Simulated scan of single mutants.
Amino acid sequence: MKTHAIRQELDQARANGPLRQIQIPPCPELLQRLRAAMDLPQPDLNEVARIAAADVAMSATLLRVANSPLHLVAGHVPCTTVGQAMYRLGLDESAALMQAFLVRHAIPVNSPHLLRFWQRSTKRSIAMGFIAGQLPGMRVDLAQGYGLFCHVGMPVLLQSVRGYGATMVEAAARIDRPFITTENINHRTDHAVVGALVIKVWHLAPELMTAIRLHHDFDALRDEGVEPEVRTLIAAGLIAEHLMRRHEGLDEDVDWAANRAAAMAWLHLSEDELEQWDEALRPRLDEA
């Protein structure tokens, strides 16, 4: 019932509460087509290729990644067509790159408060996709979507709410309370709620909506009333953020220190396995 309750919360806040002023950009048409093609029992490869070729810049992104050192094996010739790039990358990675490209252009970020926002979102998506590949039963597309959309509420709030930039500065500077507490005190909502609203308006997976709504509510890791898929996304997201911070040479954050045991226990992850993930993921984050 947690997902149902969150959907009701968003509907009420949208109709009569603080979300009335939030402007959600429309879901890109090409992203809708991509989702439809990928959601078929057998994904429509020809349609995915047509979508990739529909935008010159998106095609260039696929070619650039396919010809990067991470994918260009010694002795192989560079890809020169979108089809060759998709074959080398594989369908899942191609679709993830296309989704990231389309979302980034649908929700542009032009603010000093969110430097490198989409770069870090893409890295988080890559980390989540890697983690999903290590966990039997975890959907790679859901994991990648969580990584990409996790903090999407921030740029939407910046575009819709006067003074949100100052709130971000204040929230980041305070050590006496969590970031989202400052958001709620100043604006009666926060980026987790707005991010979940984006997922709902764009008709993306309900598990994704719920996980993004709860991604700062780590009590969900211990709450049996929360759907297992949602708890897995939140736990994996905490680990992805930790591995990203290690890759960037940053200290452990408060969320990881307080909740690492719960996240690792839920995923049945050992310290040795975490170290192996860190080592295996680093080349992918270097490339990102």
Rank of each mutant, 00 (worst) to 15 (best):
H4T: 14
H4L: 12
Q8R: 15
L10W: 10
Q12I: 14
Q12P: 02
A13C: 10
A15F: 05
Q21L: 05
I24C: 01
P25D: 03
E29P: 00
E29H: 06
E29A: 14
L30W: 09
M38T: 02
D39I: 05
L40D: 02
L45I: 06
N46E: 12
E47K: 08
E47Y: 03
A49S: 11
A52R: 06
A53P: 00
A54I: 07
D55K: 12
V56C: 11
M58C: 15
T61H: 11
A66W: 04
N67Y: 07
S68T: 08
P69R: 06
H71E: 11
L72D: 08
H76E: 15
V77A: 14
C79Y: 03
T80G: 10
T81E: 07
Q84V: 10
Y87T: 14
G90L: 06
G90W: 08
L91W: 08
A95V: 15
A96D: 13
L102N: 05
V103G: 01
V103N: 02
A106P: 10
A106W: 12
L114E: 13
R116K: 08
R116Y: 07
R120Y: 13
R120H: 14
S121P: 06
T122H: 11
I126H: 00
M128A: 01
M128S: 00
G129H: 01
F130C: 01
I131V: 14
G137T: 10
R139S: 14
D141P: 09
D141L: 09
G145L: 05
C150I: 02
P155I: 02
L157D: 02
Q159F: 03
G163S: 03
V169F: 04
A171T: 00
R174C: 07
R177Q: 13
T182E: 04
N184R: 15
N186V: 05
H187S: 03
R188K: 11
A192Q: 07
W202F: 04
A205F: 05
L208V: 08
L208T: 03
M209R: 13
T210N: 10
L221S: 06
L221G: 06
D223G: 08
E224H: 13
G225H: 12
V226A: 08
V226C: 09
E227V: 08
E227R: 06
R231E: 10
R231A: 11
T232S: 15
A235M: 04
G237M: 01
A240K: 01
E241A: 02
H242V: 01
M244E: 12
R245P: 01
H247F: 15
G249P: 02
G249K: 04
D251P: 01
E252V: 00
A258K: 03
N259A: 00
R260M: 02
A263L: 02
W266S: 07
L267I: 13
L267N: 00
L267P: 04
S270L: 09
E273K: 14
Q276L: 11
D278E: 10
A280W: 08
P283F: 07
P283A: 10
